[in-house]
Amino acid sequence: MGIHTSNKQVMNMPMPYFINTPNLGIELAYTIVILIFCFLVYFKTREIYNLTKHKGMQFFRYAFIFFGLAYASRLFLYLMIFGSDNMFGFSMIRRTMMPVSNLVVAFFSTMAILYLAYSTIWKNINIEHFLTFSNIIALFVAVMAFVSRSTLTVSLIQLVLMVFAAIIIFINHKKDKKKFGTKALYLLIFALWIFSLFALESRRIMSFEFKIGFQIISLFVFIAIYYKVAKLVK
């Protein structure tokens, strides 16, 4: 086969994943909606936080900022994985940026998981230097993501973190004897995030309908949390 191909041959070539589906639009809308609701949660609680400087509220608010940043950087990572070389100019840039995006996604999302989990247990488990502690763990996960260049590694480490957080939350819940609803919602947020990360690498084998269904559930959870916040903080 020669170097020159006819227009007909070009038309018959399989299009890259990124271009031949409406995935970019869906991913963009999905990320923007989650980002907006995460920031809305943060800003809606600003007044009551400024009045109280309540620690639990601080961790809760930061968790949503980190989730917003994690989803935003995940979109960037998505573009790196599925974008065509034409889109970013050189594949070299893409190869350099991919591990960096992986690192950023891993850092923000780990911080989000740790902050949200700690917001419910800080009264019972006092970690004196939580900021340092959470940064060390998040940096460790980020470095692992950078070295492995795989979102699968990050999702596996975060799965272990989630199970660990779930056990601690459950033990504390038994002591508190409060209803489990909100804590279950937090665990669902963790699970949905980890799955969204896992889905990045296994997207090619995942059906379009399954992906849409999963994204709708994620959106529903974030909107439900915002609705709950907005109802309480008028």
Partner: peptide
């Protein structure tokens, strides 16, 4: 005065989100 006015909201929020 604002704190007094918002106290119920604050307590409700902390209770609802188990903070």
């Amino acid at each position: 005065f604002k704190y007094l006015g918002k106290y119920k909201t604050i307590i409700g929020f902390i209770g609802e989100f188990e903070l």
